[in-house]
Amino acid sequence: MHTLWILIIGSLVGVSCALVGCFLVLRRLAMLGDAISHAVLPGIVIAFMLTASRNTLPMLAGAGAFGVLTAWLTDVLIRRGQLQSDAAIGVTFTWLFAVGVILVSAFTGHVDLDVDCVLHGEILFVPFDTWTVGGVDIGPRAFWILTGVTLANLAVIGLGYKELKLCAFDAALAAAMGFNVALWHYLLMGLVALTTVAAFESVGAILVVAMLIVPANAAYLLTDRLSVMLLLAGLFGVLSAVGGYGLATLIDGSIAAAMAVFSGLLFLAAALLSPTHGALGYYLARRARHVSPRETMGSEPAINA
């Protein structure tokens, strides 16, 4: 039963992260996902400290506040401070993460949180933390939270599919057609923060980045359709969870880390074997071109100065 819960929770992490991850990847915001997942740490820690418990609502509020703070600080540094955007992101999230780590180190023992949890979560212990409603044990708390977040992600993507799609591929056109691009951007960032917090206990603040963008990138190499990409990314998320569990048992290490590694292996496989965008596909196509002299004459690119 314990194993089953770990697999289910891991899969839910994989699916919820992969869904929002697809839009991060398409909007070229992968590193912003990294920044947000780091920067919400002080919010989570402060919520832990204030409530002295793992209540979900304060945690979400704290993380949400710091997610917004990150976006705002980055924006201020770029606009008012005239700093280039990569450096603005780099300065902001490292600072907030450092503050978070210091808080964790200073209050270890007072709260049920330590540096290991920040780094790679404690998915092994998550199933023991169960919810009882009206005296009945209804299963791990993380399961219900992650189910909620996954459903929230699905709902937003389902309702705003057209808008999110247009914003992802052509934000200028979306703006010209009268869609509120900024609103959808912040909604997406909100979902990223929400998903990060929900996944935090299970996989920690850094490895969640892997779950956000690696399955999504693997799916990106296999299809040109957004709906298929979302499905594939979700599937890869589940596969990473299951495969990661296997890998972790095999070599006796952290399950969350093994999930990240397994997702990396999936990406590697996709990069090599994808029929349309894989290295093997490119290689075969190039060989095929060299075989046919008529095509070679036509396909030699002109010199692009």
Binding site: M31, L247, A248, V261
Partner: peptide
Amino acid sequence: RCKEESALGMVLSVFFGVGIL
């Protein structure tokens, strides 16, 4: 066809995953 920031994020998180493992 993955973009540079995706590559950065993936290498960061997967390598770190290997390290933690």
